[in-house]
Design a protein around this nucleic acid. Structure first.
Length: 203
DNA sequence: AAGCCCGACAACCGCTCCCTA
DNA sequence: CTAGGGAGCGGTTGTCGGGCT
C-alpha cells in the first residue's frame, strides 16, 4: 500500500515548460511567496504537479540565480565541499550563492567528474584511482572497503585529549540527525558512524 | 545535406525527512 | 507514540543543440 500520488497525473502537463507557464508561476510566487507547492498549481492555474512547480522555480525562475558558466573558484569550492560532504548537493549549494543543487549536480557529473579523472583522482573518494593495490593480490572488493576505511581515518578523532570529541556531524550540518551518535558517544560508536556513512555511498 | 554522436542541462521519479494532528 | 502528508533531496532520464563524419 503506497502513499497517495502527489498530484493527479492524468490532468498534469509534463516536459518542458512554456513561457506562459513560467509567467504564471513567477507572478503567483511574486504575489503569494514560496511554499504550499501542492496547492500552488491549482491556485496559479497551472496544469502541473506541485513538485514540478517547485523544481522549476528553484532551479530556473528564482530571481537570485546566477546563470552562466562555473568559475574556477566555484569548481574548486565544489570539489572541496564534495570531499567533505559527499553527494549532499543541497548542502553544497548553500555554500554557493546563486547556484542550485541541480545545477551543481549536473556540473559535477558532466565536468568536474571528468576533470578529476583526468587528474587521476577518483571523483567519489578524491583519492588517486590507482592506489597501488595491483601488486597486493587483494580483491577489488577488499580494496574498495579498505579505501573507504582510509577515507574514514583521514577525518578521524584527534589523537590527543581523550575526553574531548569533535563532532563532524556538527560541522557537516547534520547534528540533529540520528546518524550523529555524539549524545551517546564513545569513540567506537563515533567511528562506526563514519564507516557506515562512507560505505553507504558505495554503488 | 543528412545522419549520428555526445555533452549539457532541464525535468521527472521515488525515496526520505520532518512536522503536525 | 504513531501515522499521514507535505516538502526536500538525490539519482536518473529525456531533450536539445552543436560538432563531426
Amino acid at each position: 500500500m503506497g502513499r497517495a500520488p502527489c498530484c493527479e497525473k492524468a490532468h498534469t502537463n509534463k516536459g518542458t515548460w512554456t513561457k506562459e507557464e513560467d509567467q504564471r508561476l513567477i507572478s503567483y510566487v511574486r504575489t503569494h511567496g514560496e511554499g504550499c507547492w501542492r496547492s500552488l498549481p491549482k491556485a496559479a492555474g497551472l496544469l502541473r504537479c506541485g513538485k514540478s512547480c517547485r523544481l522549476r522555480w528553484i532551479n530556473y525562475l528564482r530571481p537570485d540565480l546566477k546563470r552562466g558558466n562555473f568559475t574556477d573558484e566555484e569548481d574548486e569550492l565544489i570539489i572541496k565541499l564534495h570531499g567533505s560532504l559527499g553527494n549532499k548537493w543541497s548542502a553544497i549549494a548553500t555554500r554557493l550563492p546563486g547556484r542550485t543543487d541541480n545545477e551543481i549536480k549536473n556540473h559535477w557529473n558532466t565536468n568536474i567528474k571528468r576533470k578529476l579523472l583526468g587528474q587521476g583522482l577518483d571523483p567519489r573518494t578524491h583519492r588517486p584511482v590507482h592506489g597501488g593495490s595491483q601488486s597486493s593480490g587483494v580483491s577489488a572488493d577488499d580494496d574498495s572497503r579498505r579505501s573507504n576505511l582510509d577515507l574514514d581515518l583521514t577525518i578521524s578523532l584527534p589523537s590527543s585529549r581523550s575526553s574531548e570529541t569533535i563532532c563532524f556531524c556538527y560541522h557537516l550540518g547534520i547534528r540533529s540527525s540520528e546518524a550523529c551518535s555524539c549524545r551517546t558517544s564513545s569513540s567506537m560508536r563515533f567511528l562506526s558512524f563514519q564507516h557506515t556513512s562512507s560505505t553507504s555511498t558505495s554503488p
